[in-house]
Amino acid sequence: MVNNKRKYVIPGDVITTGPYRPEQNVILVDNKIIATTVGVSEIYDDSVKVIPLTGMYIPKNNDLVIGKITSHSSLSWEVDINSCYPGMLPASDIFGRNFQPSTDELNSKLKKGDLIAARIANFDRSRDPLITIADRELGKIDSGTLIQISPSKVPRLIGKQGSMIQLIEMATNATITIGQNGRVVVSCDNPDALLKALKAIRMIDERAHMANLTDRVKEMLESKSG
């Protein structure tokens, strides 16, 4: 039974039986592969997974996320990354090796409410995720429009090899930063194009479960420009 047939599932649905490897969002209960979340199931040659349509963001190492500073201690910032765990951004990440808690003022670099693009540096189940902004494309976000979509729909917004997001960027000339946690920052000089890009993103959020979404988005982007 080798078919990659996609099927809508809800928790408890038996997707298939047989010697498959359970991957994301499925469990194996005596030879039956059961979905654990609402989503679309996909059967591969030897494995089964469910692409979720709802749910919270769970941090994963190396994910790009967009966070909001909520507070700081003398050694680190606490960042809301739209997850069940707060992100920890160590002060040495910004001040460098010779960081002195007694003299360096954390507030001078990042204040409460600031948005940052960050990467999950380390996360395991025993501790809160450690995040970093020490990379070229990371750091404080100064401009752009923030919109929030469901984290489970981020892969759809990006598309296969970034096809969807490239489509929107090309059509509107906008720069879009997507955090895996569902936060998206769009910056664009042309206000009309910005609105169109936002509309496209919202459309993907609402209709992520539908097939040939790329064509629909393309249609929408082109219809107004014509």
């Binding site: 928790p11 408890g12 469990i27 059961i34 979340t37 609402v38 709802t54 489970s152």
Partner: peptide, 9 residues
Amino acid sequence: ADAGIPMRD
């Protein structure tokens, strides 16, 4: 299920 919390059934 609406909240997306993993469930066995």
